[in-house]
Design a binder for these strands. Structure first.
Lengths: 326, 326
DNA sequence: ATGAAAGCGCTAACAG
DNA sequence: CTGTTAGCGCTTTCAT
């Protein structure tokens, strides 16, 4: 910057003014400075700038596993919103490890991120609160946190379950099974409870039709086979689309026709869902919107807005795994 | 830091020494400093540190689209390697837009990233070279660049095509079609040329069996239908697994049995490939390794190593879409 | 409209 | 083993 100032024959201050478009500068001076910048191919150091302003126009997003397209979509939504607001978004994938979730949060802080968005099932409430407390603002996705700690964006899980069960009930399915995810995910617990409650109200609940598995196709493949051997069912509600993919395959291998014999409903509506065979009906979560809202909320928080809680509503995407006509 | 120094009754310098484990410090002083740090819940500013040291222990990774699990896997590999080497990895998803690829590279630079890894088809060579020139080191994935510009990690695309075609030939397929990606992707061009060459050598090439489509399931679904209506074929080689998913669905809708009537081979081996129906045979690319090698190469470059070119070899993963016995 | 001085929080280089 | 002095590249305040 000093070089630019020298070449343009002005002070560093003036260069700074031109760069920021702040204060007044005569047309002529500005031209000279801009020219010098171009000639020197100068680029200002965001690091020094951050140090001086104590702000970085940088946001962090911490997600547990990018290999689930669910998070990839959230990331894209966030990315887009951040970009439009003039912020940068740094994504930290923490690869399913609580220790690294903390480390990511700390390092984002050290690097001067103005705020963070976290979607992390693993970090205990206390640790999360402490880590987030160091930021000017923070948003938590998929998990309720006290408003003193951060804003949160969650999906109405119970509503999603009702949607799926309602449609299955309309399709005359009376023995609905649930392929739940691990309780590690708060939303899995919520959905399982909603499932139990709802089926019980209909007088259709049978605990033998509930099985818990890891969120991998492999695990849900195995769990589905086990379920098949254990008890009859005519519909299967899955914790997410990845698991549903494993389940579909298991049903196919077992010679069970979908949806004629067993209807299958996934959750999330990842891009692949429509291309499974049969195309997977699923509870659609507005992933992009989650990302966008998270960023919007975060930026609002940075300008002093109070923390809020946003609840998004899922929709049912009907496809052949539910509606028949394979 | 000044606060810590005061509380511990030492100079800032000593605190810095303790923090960095550099230089010698008496056991007693260190204890006192550590105690003070804990009491004040102090955390050092990476921003100031970067400004002073002109290094940030931060790496950037720029990918075109996280919604393709291919990139997600590369990111995970990179993430892991960076973590183990004590570096942070900031991921920038640039959402299929050349302008933002440049913007991401610039902002990473401004934020003080020590080096970057880019996997970007869109940025023209010249612009890429200029942008990368500002970093101490850089690695390009999936694209050849002059060694003066950066190191590169590429996959032997021609070998992958040979693998697929060899297996199809062994399976007595004599009318192999190619569902290519846009030429935007250098590797698509390379593979298409390898395909043409190879089939021609066998005396089996027919240009009518080559079709180009966008890398989405929708586009490849449509392209496959069109191909079906245009010319007979008994095998289909796809640019990637995402496209293969669309193709599988098209074949199914058209009532074509896979693999009995048409064998299908994808590319990349994304996690979902094994769960499509039928499970998708595919040219397996060592995605995790690409990420790891990229980071290793980058870190080597940061310590002054000369740029290198790494060529990784793909393998064929045989599954039912190729081997029969649906 | 522009410049000079001070300081953001840290490390580097030198003393002691 | 520890403290002192500069200075990283920018913005902020106050003059002019």
């Amino acid at each position: 910057m000093a070089d630019v100032a020298r070449l343009a024959g002005v002070s560093k201050q003036t260069v700074s003014r031109v760069l920021n478009g702040t204060g007044r500068t005569s047309e002529r001076t500005r031209r000279r400075v801009e020219q010098a910048i171009r000639e020197l191919n100068y680029r200002r150091s965001g690091v020094a700038r951050s140090l001086a302003t104590n702000s970085s126009l940088t946001l962090g997003l911490v997600v547990p596993a990018l290999d689930n397209p669910y998070y990839a979509d959230i990331a894209q939504g966030a990315e887009l919103a951040a970009w439009e607001a003039g912020y940068n978004l740094f994504l930290c994938n923490v690869f399913q490890d609580a220790g690294r979730e903390g480390a990511a949060l700390r390092s984002l802080e050290e690097r001067g991120a103005d705020g963070v968005i976290v979607d992390t099932p693993r970090l205990p409430d206390g640790a999360l609160a402490e880590l987030l407390g160091r930021y000017k603002a923070a948003v938590v996705i998929g998990r309720e946190v006290p408003l003193e700690v951060a804003s949160s964006i969650v999906v109405d899980d119970a509503a999603g379950v009702q949607l799926a069960l309602g449609a299955l009930h309309d399709a005359e399915r009376r023995r609905v099974a649930l392929l739940a995810g691990p309780d590690l995910y708060a939303s899995s617990t919520v959905r399982r409870e909603a499932f139990v409650r709802s089926e019980r109200e209909r007088g259709l609940f049978d605990p033998a039709r509930v099985v818990i598995a890891d969120t991998s196709p492999e695990a849900s493949f195995a769990a589905t086979l086990e379920l098949l051997s254990r008890t009859p069912f005519d519909a299967l509600v899955c914790f997410n689309d990845i698991m549903a993919a494993g389940a579909l395959r298991a049903l196919q291998v077992a010679g069970v026709r979908v949806p004629e014999e067993v209807a299958v409903v996934g959750h999330d509506d990842i891009p692949m869902a429509a291309w499974l065979s049969p195309p997977l009906a699923t509870v659609r979560v507005p992933k992009r919107e989650i990302g966008q809202r998270a960023v919007a909320t975060l930026i609002a928080g940075l300008s002093g807005a109070a923390n809020t809680r946003v609840v998004l509503t899922p929709e049912l995407t009907v496809r052949e795994s539910l509606s028949g006509m394979g």
